[in-house]
């Protein structure tokens, strides 16, 4: 009611609602169509599906190719996430506490991979991996993913450190904690929301990464690459089922992120 009163007339308000609905529809429609198609019982993709079932989910979850690629992607993301958090947090501390003169230059360099065209990054990493003879292996994927996940941690933790009251650390140190324990017991728990955000970002980005990984693989296939190569041969409903599964994981993690943000933004409620 209050928003209607605010706009004075019902017409512009209705117009606004319609506009928002339209935008949401265009954003979400492809996803919704994909999800519905994934539950088809037929052997081809059609919308709307003539019949429904979970046939393609069964197929995906019993197919060795799909399971291998899912496992590989999850394994990479599971290694990348903690490494990304530790390295990114350390970098964020260095930028926050280090010499002010160097801060801007260093930050730009460290965040650059985030905005650099991934195809350029992939090409460079490909040449490097070949030289070191580590292509088509975890030794290549993990550092490659780290280059693009670490900037997200640096940004989220860095922002959090900027508003962190450093006298809290000093208080801890005056009470007998050395620098490490002061950070461990005081700073990290307080910036925890930023750490969780950075971790979730790292996981999603690594799990979803295609371009750079594509340069580095020969026989091994991460989930996005398996999806891409399947599409090259045929368009089967299994691809819709895998997409829906991926979407579910990503959506779940993003939802956690958003909920987390709501919980902690009313600060001092952290228990």
């Amino acid at each position: 009611m209050s928003s209607q009163e605010h706009y004075g007339s019902r017409l512009p308000y209705k117009f606004l609602v319609g506009l928002v609905a339209l935008v949401i529809f265009f954003l979400e429609a492809p996803l919704i169509i994909l999800i519905i198609q994934s539950f088809t019982a037929e052997s081809y993709l059609a919308f709307p599906p003539p019949s429904y079932g979970i046939r393609w989910y069964k197929e995906v979850l019993t197919s060795e190719d799909w399971l291998n690629s899912i496992t590989l992607s999850l394994t990479i993301a599971a290694v990348v996430t903690p490494l990304s958090l530790v390295l990114g947090t350390m970098a964020a501390f260095a930028l926050d506490r280090g010499p002010k003169k160097l801060k801007h230059g260093l930050q730009t360099i460290m965040i650059a991979p985030m905005v650099l065209p991934h195809i350029v990054l992939g090409l460079g990493l490909f040449k490097m991996a070949l030289q070191l003879d580590i292509d088509d292996s975890m030794l290549a994927y993990i550092p490659a993913h780290l280059t693009i996940t670490i900037p997200f941690v640096i940004i989220s933790v860095g922002a959090s450190l900027q508003t962190f009251e450093q006298s809290l650390e000093e208080a801890a140190r005056s009470l007998g904690a050395n620098r490490f324990w002061a950070v461990w017991y005081i700073t990290l728990p307080i910036i925890q929301p930023a750490l969780i955000a950075g971790g979730i970002f790292s996981f999603i980005i690594s799990f979803d990464e295609f371009i750079i990984t594509f340069f580095l693989t020969t026989f091994q296939r991460t989930l996005p690459i398996e999806m891409f190569s399947t599409l090259m041969y045929q368009v089967k409903p299994s691809i819709a089922a895998v997409s829906t599964l991926t979407l579910a994981v990503t959506a779940f993690l993003t939802a956690m992120l958003i909920l987390r943000g709501q919980v902690t933004s009313g600060d001092k409620v952290i228990k």
């Binding site: 009251e165 006298s167 809290l168 000093e170 208080a171 005056s174 009470l175 952290i270």
Partner: peptide, 16 residues
């Protein structure tokens, strides 16, 4: 941390 001094800050610096 190796000195035994008790410090009280202007903003109290209580661990939130």
């Amino acid at each position: 941390h190796q000195r035994t001094v008790g410090l009280v800050f202007q903003n109290y610096a209580l661990f939130p």
